[in-house]
Amino acid sequence: MHISEGILSGPVMAAGAVVSLIGITAGLKKNNYDQMVHVAILASVFFVASLIHVNIGPVSVHLILNGLVGLLLGIAAFPAILTALVLQSLFFQYGGLTALGVNTVVMAVPAVLVHYFFLPLLGRTSRLTFVAGFLAGFVSIGLSSLLLGVALWLTNEDFFKISVAIILAHVPLMIIEGIITGFCVSFLLEVYPEIIPHKKK
């Protein structure tokens, strides 16, 4: 999911940087003092999750957990994901620094969308909470794959073939992330409901 140096064209990288800058500014503005610890915890989760790899055929995919980060943070997922991506690039050599804007957009936009789609379902019943978490994890990876395809298409590649290949390669990851996110939000709702935005005491 991390795009490397030398893959994207200049205009695509610039557009990604502008969109991510808007997202980061909005995220930082909306963040309040109390939420910062949650941002730090979830950014750390995102940072470390990339080290867990699953080999699927010739492709090696790793956990991303942008669905979990987005579901719990909303627009604040932008600065959290950017920080983690910078550190992943510097410490693990995942993705290129010049592609940072596009990589942030690819992972943060779906994260923010699942927040608005699935957060209202959390906490109604335990089953619905798990389903909402599963869908957040599943859909965010699907949308990220699609955005990755768009970014590559804009750099003059065959969009349809590439998008289908990327989404198919990520279907197992979509299921895995769905299950992990489902269990995580169910557990957090039980033991630490303060992390769920509308469940603050």
Partner: peptide
Amino acid sequence: KSPSPTRIATGIALIFGLAFVVARVKK
């Protein structure tokens, strides 16, 4: 080689450090 535990720990420490700075500014 896989990233060392030191690098992972440093990354997490940096994330919390940055969050602390932003939180202080906001406060």
